[in-house]
């Protein structure tokens, strides 16, 4: 072993990581070399010197400053930690919560009394049958721009009159409404419905219209109302299969109305009072 090889073993010797063979070789060299023992001694003294050096002390209040900085975490990190960590616990819980809340929202929305129609129905509008209500609920979110059926031609007096009429009808015609609902649900033809005579007390004329064109039906009905100088009451979501529209017009113009309805499609008068009053109320079911 030469001096260079011997000195390469100094660190492992100083750190007690030397193997027995290396130790034997180094000891052998140190016993015969005139220079290396002195080098080794100074090397070892240097290591001892370094290890005896005092450890610098952290400044006073250092730990407190670190803790304050750690707890003064940015708000977004605190928020994320609070919401998501630990992931394996909070994520499944949050997913379940979202599903439960969504389900509840859908159920409440579907079962709510009159739901989204509240506030947009015109006062004189006939209360919808369950089948109609269901249809309305399904369509309302998709057709937010559907305009209320209150005709633009209606005067305030006429609107008030329609309102009163609808209220009277609500109070006195519970059996009729039930019958209408049953009819809509069971698809029983209106002509055979037992409540027809009852409805005659409110409407002097009842009829069934199978329009040629459903797309233009709303506009055609409004035009017709304008032509006969009457008032049209129509469903908020528009006249369509299963809905009911009402006309209020002067007796003299009734014939004109009937002609107009025949032009719009297959119109059939289902019931008609023997004598028509001065102001005639006409109820038409759209099929």
């Amino acid at each position: 072993m030469n001096c260079e090889q011997a000195r390469a073993l100094f660190p492992v010797r100083a750190d007690e990581r030397i193997t027995p063979e290396e130790r034997a070789e180094l000891t052998g060299h140190l016993a015969v070399c005139p220079v290396c023992p002195g080098e080794w001694d100074r090397y070892l003294q240097t290591v001892i010197l370094l290890r005896s050096a005092g450890e610098p002390q952290a400044p006073p209040g250092f730990a407190q400053r670190v803790i304050e900085a750690a707890t003064r975490e940015p708000w977004h990190q605190r928020w994320l930690r609070a919401v998501f960590l630990p992931l394996h616990i909070k994520l499944p819980l949050e997913a379940v919560a979202i599903v439960v809340v969504s389900t509840l929202v859908v159920l409440v929305y579907r079962q709510g009394p009159e739901g989204p129609r509240v506030g947009v129905s015109p006062p004189s509008q006939v209360a919808p049958t369950p089948a109609e209500r269901q249809e309305g609920l399904e369509q309302t979110p998709e057709e937010p721009s559907a305009s209320p059926a209150t005709p633009s031609t209606a005067s305030p007096e006429r609107a008030q009159e329609d309102k009163d009429f609808a209220e009277r009808k609500k109070e006195s015609n519970a059996p009729e409404k039930k019958a209408e609902r049953d009819r809509a649900e069971s698809r029983v033809p209106a002509a055979t419905a037992p409540s027809l005579s009852a409805s005659q007390s409110l409407f002097q004329v009842s009829g069934l219209l199978r329009p040629k064109s459903r797309d233009a039906l709303d506009r055609q009905l409004e035009d017709l109302a304008s032509q006969v100088g009457g008032t049209l009451v129509i469903e908020t979501s528009g006249a369509r299969s299963g809905s009911v529209v009402e006309f209020v017009l002067a007796r003299d113009n009734y014939a004109k109305l009937e002609t107009g309805l025949h032009q719009m499609g297959d119109f059939k008068v289902e019931a008609k009072a023997p004598t028509l009053p001065e102001q005639v109320r006409v109820r038409i079911r759209i099929q």
Binding site: P56, Q57, A58, A63
Partner: peptide, 15 residues
């Protein structure tokens, strides 16, 4: 626990 950790190692880390 973090406070204890900092107090234990502050001098070494600073050193």
């Amino acid at each position: 626990a973090f406070e204890a950790f900092v107090l234990t190692y502050q001098h070494r880390v600073f050193g």
